[in-house]
Design a protein around this nucleic acid. Structure first.
Lengths: 114, 114
DNA sequence: GGAAGTACCAACATAAAAGTAAGTATGGAA
DNA sequence: TTCCATACTTACTTTTATGTTGGTACTTCC
């Protein structure tokens, strides 16, 4: 029942991909400090397009890392909240991001390659 | 001097991308247990093409996460070893991967989306 | 003599990811 | 009355990622 990221077809790879994607990382970290609605996330996650944010949120919801709550009011109102699993996931991702941020001076002297 | 993954142009994003790329993750984890040569890595990292492995190794080398040592012998012999930084990076990445592997049953019930 | 192994590179082709623009419904503000 | 905000979707284009093939230089094995 355990996943194996070394196995090409293991679904754990898909979850990893979602969590470590550019916008997945930022979305998880952004939601760590609490529930946010779509437009708030969009402002917080610098540079995401609506399309990408929607897609990222749907992926993370499909992985049960967050829940979507939509209120049927006239200007749409939708809230996104991390699940318990999501909080754990976000903690790991943030830990990684913090490490990279902290070690930037030592990493990459000449950032000219993609 | 500290990086910021929320900043679109921050080089930390590039490093994150290298570390969390499909093959970056597997390469780092594979090298955690010690030096490996190219062909050994290729066999260990299930499914990677030569091209992708080469590229991944060059990126990680550029980020100072591993070192390349090449011996000028007749059948080429090249060894890859994690740096101290690389070991730290690999630990974080493996931690994340382990978490995902351990929680697979709870994540993703129907893995039909990309 | 011919095949295989080694660690690549370059060119080409395809697949996947990401961005752009426009459309939708509705209420409230200007 | 026109415009904006909201939370999306859809179609389309561009960019990036990845895979495939073939070549290299030399040696050992069959």
């Amino acid at each position: 029942m355990r996943g194996d990221v070394f196995a090409m077809k293991c679904p754990s790879r898909t979850v990893m991909k979602h969590m470590t994607s550019t916008w997945g990382v930022l979305t998880l970290i952004a939601l760590k400090s609490g529930t946010l609605r779509f437009s708030e996330l969009r402002r917080k996650v610098n540079g995401v397009s609506e399309r990408m944010l929607t897609q990222t949120l749907q992926q993370l919801e499909g992985d049960r890392l967050l829940t979507r709550r939509s209120y049927p009011v006239v200007p749409p109102h939708v809230e996104y909240t991390l699940t318990d699993l999501g909080h754990e996931a976000a903690a790991h991702v943030e830990c990684l991001a913090n490490w990279v941020e902290d070690h930037m001076p030592q990493l990459a002297a000449m950032p000219e390659q993609a």
